[in-house]
Design a protein around this nucleic acid. Sequence first.
DNA 1: CTGTTAGCGCCTTCAT
DNA 2: ATGAAGGCGCTAACAG
Lengths: 335, 335
Amino acid sequence: MHQPTIIDIARQLGISKSTVSRALTAHPNVNEKTRQRVLELAEKLDYQRNQLAISLLTNQTRTIGIMVPEFISFFFPKVIIGAQEELAKAGYNVVICHSNESYEIEVTNARSLFASRVDGLIVSHTKETRNFDHFRTFTRKSIPVVFFNRVWESDEVSKVVVDDYTGAYQAVEHLVQTGRRRIAHLSGPDSLPNSRSRQNGYLDALRHYEVPVDPSLIISYDLTLEKANIYVNHLLSLPEPPDALFTINDPTAIEAIQVIKARGLRIPQDVAVVGFSDDPISALIEPGLTTVAQPVDEIGRQAAACLLAQLQATNPVAEVQTVVLPTRLIVRGSS
Amino acid sequence: MHQPTIIDIARQLGISKSTVSRALTAHPNVNEKTRQRVLELAEKLDYQRNQLAISLLTNQTRTIGIMVPEFISFFFPKVIIGAQEELAKAGYNVVICHSNESYEIEVTNARSLFASRVDGLIVSHTKETRNFDHFRTFTRKSIPVVFFNRVWESDEVSKVVVDDYTGAYQAVEHLVQTGRRRIAHLSGPDSLPNSRSRQNGYLDALRHYEVPVDPSLIISYDLTLEKANIYVNHLLSLPEPPDALFTINDPTAIEAIQVIKARGLRIPQDVAVVGFSDDPISALIEPGLTTVAQPVDEIGRQAAACLLAQLQATNPVAEVQTVVLPTRLIVRGSS
DNA sequence: CTGTTAGCGCCTTCAT
DNA sequence: ATGAAGGCGCTAACAG
């Protein structure tokens, strides 16, 4: 079915489409009566402007793409909501893509967002991503890109991260100060900067307190719950099992708690557990999970702010910046 | 910065833009050598086709809008992922909007999706939505709309729902059969069809087993956790408090469990609790939450299938359909 | 205040 | 196999 255009309105009113366009866009130079007639007919015809045509003409869509690896856990949805709020205030729409942790899908999504000419990008990449050429496509064209959480370490893009190092340091410090000596660490892939930072925080805390570092207690894994299960079981089967477990994130910690319970061990008496992120589930399970909280919606808001700064700047490259947000240790029953 | 277009390629190669277009779109009538030259230059220039221009021309964006009231809980993200998988297979992109349970934002989102000319819509509306004119804008133009979970009861749109009535009936039947006589029901707003269906299932189960219906045990509320907390406390303070609680969803049930525990009551001995949806948290808390499971990603897949059927039909209106998916009671420690 | 003209980037007849 | 021309819906000069 044919959708009404400004030409339809113009014809029916016997005026030119320019006048219709002006009336519709609140342009000052239009006779008030003419405007009224246009508005009425537009209403009657259920006219809706075609954003496609406008975008093609103005070369901006006022749409921002947000790319995340998943959005089942609370983290990414919260970040997205924070970003969206900020972006909406500035009159930007948001389209959300998730790659399901697949590098290929991420590349496809990036192409698709580029093809639909988003004005900017907010990204947390997959754990598989090693090559960032699909983001260079944007930066080369001066389309601003902001990374958060999992960031591309390039000076072409802005970044919003939390102080992973200090968060991890404080978590491990807490475990040492409550008497733990064999603290295991379930870490993520080394390719993820935040994984490396958390591991460094873990190591430095141990060294500072002169707790021996045992490499067999440090396991980098692929962040799937299946592997988490296997490695926690492995650690607990060691001749000298750990008396504490610091995990890269809360889902891993929660999985660990299930495993520890299933083996009949007590938390925290036999094994203490500390996670990272303060997933809402952490407060609901028993025992409550000690964890490092991140200011999640603030991450989204800051990412949006970075992007808007670049969007409004005459020279977007000059506005590239890195924001580091603080973390906060929340002690619950698991430690 | 100027982005390369087919005209740039054409000029540099000394051929016409028509030929470039054909080479790029795998049109049969192009000399193989010409195609190679075009493809090479396109690669070198980092040419990316402008989807905006194509959409304007072809009058289809191959993009589907998905509108949900929120996506913090696991339910909507899972549905979206299911839908997205199915849609991607058919070559459609997805843009996601969430209204944060605000009717106004929902209307704005609908306008924006219409303006950007999505080819179809998958929707679960806000709990405030009474007026559906913003969806009529689509149906009037023969743009297919599929509702799920919270559905517009109109024959202009397809619907995917679960058998809420039977799910609720079985939940209450289970409570009766385990000896409960004063079963309270925390219900949602009457404006939501699924809320009404679940309430009817609750009522019919009680009647069938000749358990007296006590109106003071049935509370419709606004689905916020704050109110859930208040009403659960209210119920437990009754002279004759309930010995079981059936809630409209899992977050409510989980909140109820916290309240019950805080009052020093035992679950399920003093009060049994049954939720709805099988949120992953249900299996993690203690005691495990008995709940009515829904085939969540299947809802998304079916919604996508309905939409694709209408998209591919010559007469989209003829393809309007309603899909009802089964539920399954999962008994855990809370009952 | 209003009309005319041009063009955003692309695909598609219709010629050649 | 290729080129020329037209048009998708709209806004923005430029005239009047």
